[in-house]
Amino acid sequence: MGPSQDMVTVRRLRRGIGVVGIAMPFVLTLGNALFAGRLTLLESISGAYHTGMRDVFVGSMCAIGVFLICYRYRPLDDVLSSVGGALAVAVALFPTASGARDDTVSATDILVGRVHQVCAAALFLLLAGFCLFLFTRTDPAVVPVTPEKVLRNRVYRVCGVIIVAAVALAPASTLLPETVQEAVKPVFWCETVAVLAFGVAWLVKGEAIIRDGSGRGVDPT
């Protein structure tokens, strides 16, 4: 007997979140290169809001938000994913301040930018919590712990640690000299690493990677 429709829906939502997350930094970078006529890194992923890729950035974040809000699994997962979805939409609707040196930034822009930063950090930390605590749950009474489940848990924990480290390093990188920040774009790389880690974790949870051979469908642990 195959998986139920609910199980299939959960699996597809997990994969959808993972695919959008992994694709976003690449699509935004390449799209911005097409608009600018040259390949150049963004100041940050959120900085795409101030480029020709604004609609793609906002649409991607809203898509992740809708996926998370629609995600239903267990009560705690439901609440946290809904909060995460609201944060993702907030990240899209409250843009980061422009990184351009010659732009005039008003008090409102600064406030909106701070709301953006708080929502983005909270979203990343919440997604790290999914990786470290929710995805790694194991209930041997429900299903035997397979070697694949052990491997998946290792992947989740690594992804969670990477996200937390990236969130910590992003603000710390602003202490670097401006010339280094301009050349390396450390915030962009921190955000990209965090987004890729969370995307990989959700693809694994959606059974696109490291599947059990039993064909049970959605990982019930």
Rank of each mutant, 00 (worst) to 15 (best):
G2C: 14
T9P: 00
R12D: 14
G21I: 01
I22K: 01
M24F: 06
L28A: 12
L34P: 13
L34Q: 09
L34R: 13
T40N: 10
L41R: 08
L42M: 11
S46Q: 06
S46V: 15
M53Q: 07
V56K: 01
V56A: 12
M61H: 13
M61L: 11
I64Q: 05
I69K: 03
Y71M: 15
Y71R: 03
Y71S: 05
V89I: 13
A90N: 02
A97P: 14
S98F: 00
A107G: 15
T108C: 15
I110E: 15
V112C: 03
V112E: 10
A120K: 10
F124G: 05
F124M: 01
L126W: 08
L127D: 12
A128I: 06
R137P: 00
P147Q: 09
E148I: 15
R152D: 00
N153V: 10
V158K: 09
I162Y: 13
V164A: 04
A165G: 12
L169I: 11
A170D: 06
A172S: 07
Q181S: 09
Q181L: 11
V187Q: 06
W189N: 00
V195Y: 10
G199T: 11
E207A: 15
I210K: 01
R211F: 05
G215R: 02
V218M: 10
P220V: 00
P220A: 02
T221W: 03
